[in-house]
Design a binder for these strands. Structure first.
Lengths: 195, 195
DNA sequence: GCCGGAACTTGTCAATGCCTAGATACCGGG
DNA sequence: CCCGGTATCTAGGCATTGACAAGTTCCGGC
């Protein structure tokens, strides 16, 4: 369908086509391998066409990050408790590796972009809501640290997973499932987690 | 001293000069901003000189990663217990941000490089030694997961720190100190950590 | 003192990012 | 229906970069 309308001057949905191609490249070869001209070739348009939608190479990556945060917020929203939110965190990284990488590499995108700020705020909110669902430990200082701890745990696991550092430790086990039991080890769900 | 011998044909220690300049650029502007020609200019040599020492741009980054793993192994070796090893992990990331970034971005370097493999093995060993120092929990499966959990926690904290995501959560507190108390919250040191 | 190789230079080429000017298609008001 | 404005895309050009090839300078061992 999409390939039939090849001879039209307007692509129809070039922005999405470029984005999708970019995600493909980033996921398989990393963000460094990304080339605007290459993406243009893949989409069958001229080499300057992408610039109209994204201005820059950085602009494209900013759009990727913004889209990533939006999807991320949605992915986190569905989880019932803190642990499942962590699982969702890991699942998102595994399912959207390109988004995840760009989101957490500040030197790749423009951190002050309005769209990015908006979607990132949504994701941050979804994240914070998860921590708020914790059984209150009492002292407020600990609460904040607990939130950082949970975030660190999920983020570290996701990052190590994407960089291939957990391959032999997991031995082909399902990463999500591994994280679920791992989180159980650390944050004991029942029993007031001792402190 | 170094600047006096400017007019010699041979630089004297170009390899180190390039490496240091590269670390500077990566730390301030990210790995994407790295340019061999720019590094050559900074060192006052011709644009092709770096290639003789590192072959490639990828070769340079591989050297950075290898050096990083060596420094990393040393940094981890000094820590007495698991928690302090985590603190050392975070301290290393904060002290050597450029090394850390490149080490954990597989698309930037050549993962099969012999030097890199050697130093990385040393670091892995230092890391595993820390987990082995844990009070044995009994079941072997849990041990492995506990190791992954500790690694994830430290790595996630370090990564989030470097990407600026902990700035407001920490509010100017010393990151190392924050991680120390955070680790205390999660892995309760005395008392058989409940499970 | 000489000779082989390491360290560095100069020159070149293809590819890329970005800019500008121009062509083409779509869209709403008359 | 058509006509002007605008969004979309093309074409061309320029500076920079990474990689390669061939030459030059220097060092150390024999």
């Amino acid at each position: 369908m999409t390939s039939e309308r090849e001879r039209t001057y307007h692509h129809g949905d070039l922005r999405r086509a470029i984005l999708t191609a970019a995600l493909d490249v980033i996921a398989t070869e990393g963000p460094a391998a990304l080339s605007l001209r290459d993406l243009a070739r893949r989409a069958g348009v001229s080499h300057a066409a992408p610039a109209h939608h994204f201005k820059d190479r950085t602009g494209l990556l900013t759009a990727v990050a913004a889209e990533g945060y939006a999807l991320f917020a949605d992915a986190l929203a569905g989880a019932p408790d803190l642990r499942e939110r962590g699982v969702a965190y890991v699942r998102f990284a595994a399912t959207h590796p390109a988004h995840f990488q760009v989101m957490f590499q500040p030197d790749l995108h423009r951190a002050d972009d309005p769209d990015l700020l908006a979607t990132r705020a949504r994701a941050t909110e979804a994240l914070r809501a998860g921590v708020a669902g914790l059984p209150p430990v009492g002292r407020g200082e600990d609460d904040r640290l607990t939130g950082v701890a949970a975030w660190s745990l999920a983020h570290g696991f996701a990052t190590l997973l994407l960089t291939g550092n957990l391959a032999d430790a997991l031995e082909g086990r399902d990463p999500e499932e591994a994280f679920r039991s791992l989180a159980a080890l650390v944050f004991t769900p029942e029993e007031g987690r001792g402190r």
